[in-house]
């Protein structure tokens, strides 16, 4: 695959927490605009992949590239050295993340949650940031909550604000970390609808960890089955859900459907 056709590249990435090896020399790529879903048992390292991409964790081995730039490392002369904060911030600009627990800032109202970073990180003028924030809130169906405080919103509404907040930074890659796991089913449906909409109408690269299998089937171009720190199956959704090759994939899908 030529470099300009890769948005995310993991190359022999190792991640340990103490003695616990979460990723074992993981390789994988995603193309620009591709929608990739990671499935697998809890503790298999799916969330760690997203956290590494966001720079919330550091790799113990291997490299991560975003576009043609290293995220985990930076070039010094012709050597690769671990990235410093400045380099991380530069590459992170291309990435947005939505968390399981929303992580809205309780000290800011909805509008400011959406405009703070575009203004202070991207240097957008306030009017531009606010206009864009209103468009995004409209898109997630919360235009009337502009001045509400996060504490006044339901979980589903908070998560939709969080999605809008991540998009306000105009990321090339959007990371979705179990975004509906903390929500009741009827609230989760609204959030998933918003995400389907985004998947259809934008060219953002989606990397998604979820247990919502129907949603994964709807939006994904590829589904990766994860177990023991490795990808054990990598296929289009129809294939992986209808005729999985691996026994472990079958067992996992069985257990998810049963619960």
């Amino acid at each position: 695959m030529p470099a300009d056709d890769v948005m995310i590249r993991f190359d022999k990435v190792v991640k340990r927490f103490g003695d616990n090896v979460v990723l074992r020399e993981l390789d994988f790529q995603a193309r620009p605009g591709e929608h990739v879903t990671l499935i697998g048992p809890s503790g298999s390292g799916k969330t760690t992949i997203l956290r590494l991409l966001m720079g919330l964790e550091r790799v113990n081995g291997g490299t991560i590239q975003v576009g043609d730039e290293y995220l985990s490392h930076m070039r010094r002369g012709d050597k690769l050295v671990p990235a410093d904060e400045r380099h991380l911030r530069k590459v992170r600009r291309r990435i947005g993340m939505v968390f399981q627990q929303f992580n809205l800032f309780p000290n800011m109202n909805v509008l400011r949650n959406l405009t703070e970073a575009p203004i202070s990180v991207l240097g957008q003028p306030r009017e531009q940031a606010e206009a864009r924030a209103k468009e995004l809130l409209d898109m997630v169906g919360l235009a009337e909550k502009l001045t509400a405080n996060p504490a006044e919103l339901s979980g589903g509404q908070q998560q939709r604000v969080a999605i809008a907040r991540a998009l306000a930074m105009q990321p090339d890659v959007l990371l979705l970390d179990e975004v509906t796991s903390a929500l009741d089913p009827e609230l989760a449906a609204g959030v998933l609808d918003v995400l389907r909409d985004i998947a259809r109408s934008t060219d953002v690269t989606l990397l998604c960890v979820t247990h919502a299998m129907k949603f994964a089937r709807d939006i994904s171009d590829r589904v990766l089955m994860f177990d023991g720190g490795k990808i054990i199956e990598d296929a289009p959704p129809a294939e992986i859900f209808d005729s999985p090759r691996e026994a472990r994939t079958r067992d996992f899908l069985q257990s998810v459907i049963e619960t």
Binding site: G96, M97, F99, N103, A117, V121, R165, A166
Partner: peptide
């Protein structure tokens, strides 16, 4: 989580 939310928005 609040630190991480701020990091994800690339705040310094």
């Amino acid at each position: 989580a609040q630190h991480e939310g701020a990091i994800a928005l690339n705040l310094g």
